[in-house]
Design a protein around this nucleic acid. Structure first.
Lengths: 144, 144
DNA sequence: TATTGTTATACTCTATAACTATA
DNA sequence: TATAGTTATAGAGTATAACAATA
């Protein structure tokens, strides 16, 4: 029951997780500045690239853990830049399918390089198997 | 070089880390509502409990990754509730040492129980060694 | 001159509710 | 009536600069 005794903040796994998440988020945001993207808009772009038929905004919001209302502005911005397109879903006209344009795919590839560079500052010194284990554990937490 | 090829957002370790951090942060914030605390104020309280001589606000800010100006309000609140006290540092009167009161220690103990309960929803299903490995890896990222 | 704590302010992000169009 | 997308808005959090007191 070590967890129920007084514990240093530096040993608190929730603190460590939030702090590490915030550090990486901030670093990736900085890395994406040259492309005029942030983690949020980059994430939407990546999801739009994953399905050529397009994803609806509700599922984007769910994956990112945001309210659907927050997705609207992100897509507006990407659409104005010609990186994604909203197309009405013929099967259900309430849906609007978000798909990446060719330019969107190009920008996404560039962005991922910048993201990977930023990641390497945090994960680059860790053994590959430790990073793999970290990814797997986080995956189980985020998508149980 | 798998990291430089198109990758699903769900496999992006930075995304997973930020997302998991946000999830746990939100859950712990909710868990602390009954005590009138948030993760931020709880973290300050924990740090104030760690050193009976008191910690200065600069080091609190550094540990939490915040600007010192953001610490002021957190401590104001804890001080008004009688959970911590600001005492001038005799050795350097620019410093104000933040130490927890007896009541502060009591509240901290209660709070940690709530925090641990919230954590168990995310980490409770993982094998103990996986959690230990996660804590160690995150520690290396946060405090390199 | 440099550092600690503080205040002020502008900016971004977040949460919530309400509206429209479709089903 | 229920759902997808949208708009509006108030509140919380963030970043930055400036200031007084002390070193």
């Amino acid at each position: 029951m070590a967890e129920t005794q007084p514990r240093l903040l530096a040993d608190d796994i929730g603190f460590l997780l939030s702090r590490a998440g915030g550090m990486v988020l901030g670093a990736v945001n900085k890395a994406l500045v040259p492309l005029g993207l942030k983690v949020r808009s980059y994430s939407v772009l990546v999801l739009a690239c994953e399905d050529s038929a397009g994803v609806n905004q509700r599922s984007v919001a769910a994956t990112m853990g945001l309210d659907p209302s927050q997705i609207v502005g992100l897509i507006d911005e990407l659409e104005e830049r010609g990186l994604v397109a909203r197309t009405p879903d013929p099967a259900d006209r309430r849906n609007r399918l978000i798909a990446a344009t060719e330019e969107g795919h190009r920008v996404r590839d560039e962005a991922q390089e910048l993201v990977d560079q930023a990641h390497s500052a945090y994960f680059g010194d860790l053994p590959a198997e430790v990073v793999a284990q970290l990814r797997e554990t986080l995956g189980r937490i985020v998508f149980p």
